[in-house]
Design a protein around this nucleic acid. Structure first.
Lengths: 342, 342
DNA sequence: AGTTAGCACTCGATATAAAAGAGTGCTAAT
DNA sequence: ATTAGCACTCTTTTATATCGAGTGCTAACT
């Protein structure tokens, strides 16, 4: 079904006025913001039609109109103009990111922060993650008489550490043995190879040395497992409180969801490109009252992690989309440069 | 000035009823909870005296009494009984902490979480930090063709990493040179020695090799600086919202303060032992409306980091104190064992 | 002198009613 | 098809009365 040009313009005006003010908008104020001459009565008729089409809601009979989720959807699909960031803003963001450019985790942290500040919503970003990365190096460092740390670095740029404890005093010699044995077997393999079964097999092949190394092997297993899952970095949780239409319990439901990294990453990495999810579109009951703008960033052209903004359906989609897009691009570029310096 | 036994008991009752209910408490309900027979009129007289002494406040003339900050102070100093944790709770906490025992940062993270859950307040903990720790090891790991990571481990158990970029391709040989040169000069030194001047001196002594290593040296400097300052780990920020007496702007002020790590650690590490700060006692205007229970934990008998709980003055001090104390002890014990395994 | 019963009084909280105002939907005229 | 006009609806605001918890004081009591 095709909407008349006038209806489209009116819907757009309602969305934009409502996003800005947070108050249901009436025929009069729509009238005032239209660039063609038309009476409020006409607008009322159109509004009535738009309500009937399910694009606008009415809190109660004698109140103004509020965009429905379908209304927002139509708006973002057809009516919205992207609202690019100012050059000044870009400059600030760039310099902020540059300072943490060489460490994926710090970078994502900075991105979340910047995005939260920029949009006044909650922001989240994930590290590339993924088990298809290869193991680049496994290092051992002594941290005390009987403890040492294993450091695992992957080709995806992730770096995870774990401290482990031995029942005997650790010497440089022993660490050297650990290093040689483990690197020999692991470097170059995809992280996803490092399963409990694999470690068990490795231990078996070591003969009596396995006893010596058992805690180290367990640490390696742990650290490999951790490398496989994407880290998520949340920022600006408090911004959810800024939205007056949320009541406290709703905020808690959302934060609860956001604090479960597995589910959150599943949602974020569900598909590629840039997506806008309004209300129930996320298919997550906890988020029925919220919207998200998600963008996968790419490393060397391949989908990697994601950055996203979570906020009320009443958000400035144009601006948020531009912000998310800009940062997603920036992250992709930086990580590509960092990791794919061919 | 000495308070009569009866006044003390009445003050105690008011504090405890108010902490529990959040509602100003009247003479009648005090009466009901006293273990000696006395009329409400008598209690009223006593309450009136306590008000005059500045120990109780009255929201308005015909309302019940609310403890003033001075009242809370007297309560925690003289009237409060510590309220030890249940053995069941202890067991849960212990097992929770044990799982992350070998990594100071993860440990503190777990502590904050546990404390926030236990007290339903905001919790914070700091890693030992401090520049008097010695450098135990500096490792270099290649992360891509032209980037490598420096890992610095201190005797305090902190472990920091930083990625750096070189203008030439990095080879295992080069990394070995880095490793030898830097470790030779740094291992065993206190972290606080690693100043810009020191690095400059080091570079000078390297002759033409300095050019090759400049980015590595800068990374070492960065990572040393980062090792010196204590990490702070915040948890349960949302719990501030649970307190109905806070309005949103106050919460923001507090969170703003908590998000400035330097000021926060300064406050936490200001003195040793266990402290309770009520309202203005922290001398931080942002926290005038909040109370804190802070406990330094010790490693091998020496003051190290701190764990703390931040919440409304109307908190269950007995319980919070017990929780903070228990976790502070636990952290101290674990880190002592981890780092001082002589 | 300390304690208590009794009571008038205060002041927020709750309830009720009235008025205001924003905005609609409908009708009839243009 | 558009618009002016108007009655109607429903929330918000304002005003007013009532309620009730709790105090402070006085006078009687032990």
């Amino acid at each position: 079904m095709e909407l008349s040009q006038r209806k489209r313009k009116i819907l757009q005006t309602v969305v934009e006025l409502y996003v800005e003010s947070g108050v249901p908008v009436g025929s009069k104020s729509v009238c005032d913001h239209l660039d063609f001459p038309v009476s409020s009565a006409t607008v009322r008729n159109e509004l009535s039609d738009l309500s009937e089409l399910g694009l606008l809601d009415q809190p109660h009979t004698s109140a103004g109109r509020v965009p429905s989720h379908r209304g927002y959807r139509l708006y973002v699909d057809q009516l919205m103009k992207p609202k690019p960031l100012g050059t000044e803003e870009c400059r600030i963001i760039d310099s902020l990111l540059l300072s943490s450019a060489y460490d994926p985790e710090k970078l994502l942290n900075g991105v979340s922060r910047a995005l939260a500040a920029l949009t006044r919503c909650t922001a989240v970003s994930t590290t590339p993650g993924g088990g298809d990365a290869a193991i680049r190096a496994v290092q051992f460092v002594q941290t005390s008489r009987r403890t040492a740390m294993v450091v695992l670095i992957t080709s995806a740029g992730t770096m995870k550490t774990r401290v482990f404890h031995c029942e005997f005093d650790i010497t440089p010699e022993i660490l050297r043995v650990f290093f040689r044995t483990i690197n020999e077997k692991l470097v170059g393999r995809p992280v996803s190879d490092i399963t409990p079964a694999f470690i068990q097999g490795l231990a078996a092949s070591l003969g009596e040395m396995a006893i010596l190394m058992s805690s180290a092997l367990m640490a390696v297993l742990d650290v490999a497992r951790e490398s496989m899952e994407a880290d998520v970095c949340l920022s600006g949780e408090m911004n959810l409180m800024l939205t007056p239409e949320y009541e406290i319990s709703g905020v808690h439901r959302v934060l609860d969801f956001l604090s479960r990294p597995e589910e959150l990453t599943r949602l974020l990495l569900e598909s590629g490109g840039t997506r806008i999810l309004i209300g129930r579109e996320s298919r997550r009951p906890e988020l029925y009252g919220t919207s998200m703008v998600i963008s996968r960033y790419t490393i060397g052209g391949r989908d990697a992690g994601a950055v996203a903004v979570i906020g009320p359906p009443r958000m400035n989609y144009g601006r948020v989309l531009a912000s998310v897009g800009y940062l997603s691009d920036a992250v992709g570029r930086m990580l590509t440069e960092l990791l794919d310096a061919e």
